[in-house]
């Protein structure tokens, strides 16, 4: 619940920032009143309103939960149920790091090597053993995909 409230607040702040930047885009001549800045400002308003609405609602609910008797266990149900558990947070970190590393390495060691490395790392994280099997499968998949896309679909892997 707290995560949601924080996200809601961030959203409000971002919306306002977005709107302020948008408002500064000059409308030229006949476009007075509905230039490039019009839509962003409207959107900023809409998002801000709904983000505020959502945050207010969440805060009210949080208050109710906090006032509830501790033995009721309501907090246990309404709290973390919508949160991100530790496992998945780490998974998201792993995937992001692996992808960033792979893409940054592609100009250096080539597409096939970098993607095979990506596949290797991810499959090992998922528990694939033994090592030689992971390497073989990763190389095979990376190589095949490279072949399919570069020969079959004329994609140029120039990083």
């Amino acid at each position: 619940m707290i995560g949601r409230i924080v996200f809601g607040c961030c959203l409000v702040v971002l919306a306002i920032a977005y709107g302020v930047v948008g408002d500064n885009y000059p409308a030229m001549g006949l476009q007075e009143g509905f230039g490039p800045g019009l839509f962003p400002v409207i959107i900023a308003g809409v998002v801000a309103v709904f983000a505020v609405l959502e945050t207010v609602q969440n805060t009210l609910i949080l208050r109710k939960i906090q006032k509830a008797p501790i033995e009721s266990g309501v907090a246990a149900v309404a709290g973390p149920a919508s949160g991100v558990d530790g496992h998945e947070f780490i998974s998201s970190l792993v995937i992001v790091t692996a992808v960033v590393a792979a893409v940054l390495l592609m100009p250096v060691i080539g597409f096939v090597a970098a993607s095979a490395g990506l596949l290797l790392v991810l499959s090992m994280v998922m528990g694939m053993r033994p090592l030689w099997k992971s390497v073989a499968i990763s190389a095979l998949v990376a190589g095949s995909l490279h072949l399919i896309f570069s020969k079959g679909f004329d994609v140029v892997f120039a990083f």
Binding site: L118, L119, S123, M126, M128, V141, A142, L145
Partner: peptide, 14 residues
């Protein structure tokens, strides 16, 4: 899944 999930990530990149 151990083959599938990483492949999905790679396919997304490509």
């Amino acid at each position: 899944a151990r083959v599938l999930m990483p492949t999905i990530v790679l396919l997304s990149i490509i």
